[in-house]
């Protein structure tokens, strides 16, 4: 299971970088989306996959009866998803506004602030 997940993470990272290097705005955004998904999966994987053992402590006792899945990475990922949702939504608005204002379709057309 770990191996499959690791390959998926690698594939997502690869795809993301490929799309980022492709110099059109839409692919850039899709690349950023894939990148954030790749990282979320990576956090999940790095913290260890535990199957079918939810971190729920039975009522009346103070600790779980058996080893359970670590809930913290899930909390981290949830936070990261919310953040990347917000940031990417903003980026989307910014990109659409920019490309409308500049009437550009290609990132190479945006060099005026570089020199």
């Amino acid at each position: 299971m770990e191996l499959v997940a690791a390959i998926v993470v690698g594939g997502l990272f690869g795809a993301a970088v490929y799309l980022l290097l492709w110099r059109t705005p839409v692919k850039l955004i899709i690349g950023l989306v894939l990148l954030s998904n790749a990282i979320n999966l990576l956090i999940f994987l790095a913290a260890g996959l535990t199957r079918g053992k939810p971190p729920i402590i039975p009522e009346g006792s103070l600790r779980a009866a058996q080893a359970v899945a670590d809930p913290l990475p899930q909390a981290l990922i949830l936070t990261a998803i919310v953040i990347s949702f917000g940031v990417l939504a903003f980026t989307l608005v910014l990109f659409s506004r920019t490309f409308k204002t500049l009437a550009a379709t290609h990132l190479d057309e945006m060099k005026t602030t570089d020199s």
């Binding site: 954030s36 956090i43 790095a46």
Partner: peptide, 21 residues
């Protein structure tokens, strides 16, 4: 925005691996 997003992504990657370790 783009460069800073990528920087955050790298940061988060490092964070995840660090937590795993």
């Amino acid at each position: 925005v783009t460069l800073n997003l990528i920087s955050s992504a790298v940061f988060l990657t490092g964070l995840g691996i660090l937590y795993g370790m």
